[in-house]
Amino acid sequence: MSQQPFQYEAPQSLAELWSTLDLGQDGTRFLAGGTDLLVKYKRKQLSVTRLVDIKNIPDLQGVWLDAALGLRIGALTTLTDLAAHPLVNEHVPVLAAAASKMASAQVRNRATVGGNLCNAAPSADLAPPLLVLQARIKTLSAAGERELPLRHFFAGPGLSTLRPGELVSEVILPLPEGNTRAVYLKQGLRQAMDIAMVGVAVKLKLSGSLCEEAAIALGAVSPVPLRAESAEQYLKGRKLDAQSIAEGADLAAKEASPISDVRASALYRSQLVAALLKQGLQQCAGILTEGEN
């Protein structure tokens, strides 16, 4: 209310965006769905002198399949569209499922994929599934394009490796090989409108009960969403049974470095990592055995 006024612009194209603005300036923010940005602004956690609304830029929209590269998801794709999109549901159903568990219908209608990643909350629900899906991020700036793996994108709570004036244009997903299954398990204190106390994504490539490859990502238990590499390595090449699942789960819990906050204690978060991962591994293994028979 009594906050400093800011300048608002809504460029209609990338060309207009680059031509009219000096984006390197401090206090310049991109606005997508605004479901993180406006909340932070109102709570005075963010200073804004210039707000650049990117919602009208066509180049940042759409979901399409690229034979060579995989599935490409425009940064402005809303969570509602992500959850419903046929290509997403066909190739990476885990992502659609994760999106549908987020926030509420009203928020999902506005919130975008790019915003969820760029906001860089350790608890961002799209991060763990995208990490196990080996997502790459495509960025754009006046200086040109670049591409980087999602695991190099997060730099700390609320921090990404984006450079000033750079924006995310799309998320690129290699198509998962056959025999792989992935799940995302999120635990909050209620079943909707909640930020994860812990989020765990698992992707397994199985041959029978043998785990050929495992990808595990954890949310809300470290400064950035992270891959649980020692658990992944442990499970790789191992038969999935009660013992290896328990061991893998414990290893992942050790990789987490959670904090205690208003949502959960550090101890409970660690325990939750193990419990959710156990469920996740069981579910992936179960689904696969069913599928194979």
Binding site: S104, L189, R190, Q191, A192, M193, D194, I195, V262, R263
Partner: peptide
């Protein structure tokens, strides 16, 4: 309602968890 040194630290509907229709 979590109160730390007299200050409500979860004074919003994200962290003060009223149950929702699905709960």
């Amino acid at each position: 309602m979590k109160v730390l040194e007299g200050r409500v630290i979860n004074g919003n509907f994200l962290d003060y968890r009223l149950l929702t229709a699905v709960d």
